[in-house]
Amino acid sequence: MSDEAFIELDGVEKVFDVRKKTGFLKRERRQVRAVDSISFTVPRGEMVGYIGPNGAGKSTTIKMLTGILTPSGGRLRVAGIDPSRERTRLAHRIGVVFGQRTTLWWDLPLIDSYKLMHRMYRIPDARYRENLDRLVELLDLGALLDVPVRQLSLGQRMRGDIAAALLHDPEVLYLDEPTIGLDVISKSRVREFLRELNAERGTTVLLTTHDLQDIEQLCSRVMVIDHGRMMYDGPLAGLHEVGESERTLVVDLERELPPIEVPPARVVKVEGPRQWLAFPAAESAAVLVARVAAEYPLVDLSVREPDIETVIAKMYAEQAEQAEKAGSAGNAGKAIS
C-alpha cells in the first residue's frame, strides 16, 4: 500500500513570518505563504520533475520532504515516516543533492568523503564496496577518487556528490538543480546516470530544475509550482498545451529571402539569411523541418526549447485571466494571494 504512495502530501503549507523594514526603527510583520496547501503523491519508482520560477516554493517543499523544515499545516509522509518528527531515521532512506552546495570535503581526496559516508550511515562493508564500484563505473569516477575535491571541475564534483548521496541505497533521491552550471557533456552524463539508476534500482527521483531538457529527457511527470501553489501536475506534453508554449526553429538559408511560409509556424525574426520561426511546442519539429527543407534552400537549422520561465509566465498570465473572468462573478483576485 505504501508502495502506491511513497511520497504523500496532503494540504501541506509553510507560512513564514517576514519582518520588513518600513522606515527608521519601524518594522512590519507580514506572513508569506511559501507553500500554500499543496497535495500530491508520488508512487515508488517514479521520476518527477518539480519546477517553477525562483521563490515559487520548490526548495521549501524539498526541505519539508527531507525533514529540514517543519510544515505549518497539512500532512506529509515519506516512506510512511513523518520527516520533521523522525528526521534522522528518515535520513537513512533518502539521498539529497543540493546543486550549489557540496557535501564533499574540499581539501581531501574524493574517496575520503565516501569513506565518511560509509561509516556515518553504517553501510555494511560488502554493500558499500558493491555500491561504490557500481557508482564509480556508472559515473566514471575511477580516475577522480584520489583527487582532492577542490581540484575537480563543477561537473566532476556534481557526479561525485550524486555518488555520495547514493552509497547508502536510498529509496528516494532528491536533486535540487542537479545540472545547474554544467557543460553539455556533463549534463547528458548526469541525465544518463539518473535514467539508469531509476531503471536498475527503481529509485524514486524528485528533481527541481530550471532546465526543461532535464525534465524532457528524464521525467514522465512534471509538477509546476508558482507562488506556493500547484499550477500543473501531469505529463510534460500537457504542460506545453496548457502553457500554449512555443518552440523556435532557427533556419539558415542559402541566401536572404522574404519571410518563409510554413504554417502553423510563423516567422518572428529575420536577420540576413537567418530566420526564426515560432511553432506550437506540441507540434512535431520533424514534420516542420521536412517541409522547410523541401520548399526552401536550407543550409543549417536548430530547434530551441521554450524555457520554463516563459512557459510558466504564460500559464500564470492565463490563470490570472481566468480568475479575472471568474472575478466578475464576485470573486476577484483570489488567484493571487
Binding site: 537513512h92 543540493f98 552546495r101
Partner: peptide, 14 residues
C-alpha cells in the same frame, strides 16, 4: 547563511 547547514540536517547523526 550559505545554506550548508541544511546538509548537516539531512545526515543521520545528531
Amino acid at each position: 547563511r550559505d545554506g550548508s547547514f541544511d546538509i548537516l540536517l539531512v545526515r543521520p547523526v545528531p
